[in-house]
Amino acid sequence: MTRVAILRYPGTWSERDFQHALSLVPGVESDILWHEDADLKGYDAAVVPGGFTYGDYVRAGAIAKLSPATRELRRFADAGKLVLGSCNGFQILCEAGLLPGALVRNRGLEFRCDWVHLRVERDDTPWTTGLRDAVLRMPIAHGEGCWVADDETLADVESRGQVVFRYTDERGGATAAANPNGSLANIAGVCNEGRNVVGLMPHPERCSEALLGGTDGYRVLANLAPALAGTAPALYR
């Protein structure tokens, strides 16, 4: 059994969606942990869901990075455990320095609530095993999802293969028109150098069953159990 901790900060709102989506993955059980007393001992993976923690005050994710849960998350990540951040969770991981770059106001100033396509750039993270070059369709819902970094960081992230997801058209072309928020190099998600921490702006938990209009999120989340057992995912390959 893979045990997953789902962190809940004040203003987190996707934790129940994640718990439901993870309940569909065989061999995975999850708990929602309140940020003030989140103890990650005994867990294999942690999820930082979307929302508007602390009302996005100062910057999206800025106040959450100083929460006890984020300190615990840093220890957890340093120990090589798996961490996934989606939307506001991605913003928190970048603010905390667990992932490179930062997420700023969308280029067009619009809040984007839409379906997008993503090309999976790397299958050597535990969250994307077997998905190399897959084009996934996922929903986004964010106002501050424009990923930026200085030139040196961007070059490092590209050369070290830390770009995990890129916004593309449905055929996998990373065009300007397919970029919903102005992110540099169409970057939708990155990983750390250790590859155990992955963040992305789209919402895999909102497209994990056909009833919700898509199942590509499940293809990411289904990696959890088998990735930890060191085997290829059996489902939705």
Binding site: A62, I63, L66, A102, V104, D150, T153
Partner: peptide
């Protein structure tokens, strides 16, 4: 450096 400004941006 720890909260009010993000040195990346």
């Amino acid at each position: 450096t720890e909260l009010l400004a993000n040195p990346v941006i």
